[in-house]
Structure formats: structure tokens, C-alpha cells
Amino acid sequence: MSEPWGLFWLFLRASLFSTGGTGNLPLIHQELTAEGVADERDFAEALAIGQVSPGPSGLWVVSFGFLIDSWRGGLLALLAILVPPLLVLLIDRLMRRAEAHPAMQGFVRGMMLAGAGAFIPVLATMLHAAGWSLPTLLIVAASVLLARARRVPVIVHLALAAALGILVDLARIG
């Protein structure tokens, strides 16, 4: 997978067969962790940077590309995510014709559900890698509640979590 074409093709495939900013995560995670090209930390860091950088949070993959293959990886990831959205023009035309067909509605709904389901093992693996300690679980729970309230910008949210991580570390050393 270290070949540029292989990496570009993976990013492109993952984006082509997913919707949303992080819908491409399960496929990329599955392939690159199996090959040992990336680990849980790479994914977590890229997701966090994607949240605080401008533009859609789906740009996490650009950060991820940079982390595993420097400028080449970042630029390939950026290029790969620019192509699939153009297909929306085709979908727009198709939807005008077939959006009322029950099978099409069911297919889209099934893909959305499968996409959400495929996300769960990724989060479970990340949690496993982070360790099932009480502070970790408490931060996960607090993060869900904070994000649900939608009152705190994500950048502040992650800064608070970083400060908490440093405090927990200082308490351990102390």
C-alpha cells in the first residue's frame, strides 16, 4: 500500500462507496490497520485535526494521508476526495427519475444503516487501543454529552479534552 497509486485508489474507493465526512473511515481503517500501515493513534489524531481545521470535517482523511505518507499522502487524499462529489450531478438526475421507487429508497436507507453499523467496530478498536480505564470512559461519556448539547465549538471541546488528559497525567505522576 506504500505505492502512491495504491493509496490514492484506497482513498478514492472509500470515498466513492460512502457518504458523509467519515463514512470512508471503516474501509480505510480496515485495510490500512490490517497491513500495518497505520494504527489507532494515526486515525484518532487525523480525526481530531479534521475537526479543528476549516471546511468539512471529512478533510480528516487529508490529515491522515499526511500522517502516513507526508505531503504526497496528504495531496493524494485531497485529490481522491475531490472526485466522488462530482457524481452528485449524476445522482441528482437519477434521483429526479427514481427517487420515488421504493427499492431505491430502501437501498439508500440500507446503505446508511450499514455505514453506521460499520462505524461501531472502528470506535470499539480505538477505545480498546486507548485502554478501558475509568478516566477514558468518563471522557468518552462527557464528550458525547458535550457534543450533543451543541453549545461548545468542537475546537474548544477538543482543547478541554487535551487539558483533561494533561491533568490526569499530572495527577498520576504526582
Partner: peptide, 11 residues
């Protein structure tokens, strides 16, 4: 150690 669990929560 704080950011990763927070990212999992967001996820």
C-alpha cells in the same frame, strides 16, 4: 490521552 476518548465520543 484526553483527545482520543473525546474523538471516540464525537464518533
Amino acid at each position: 490521552a484526553g483527545v482520543i476518548p473525546a474523538t471516540i465520543g464525537l464518533g
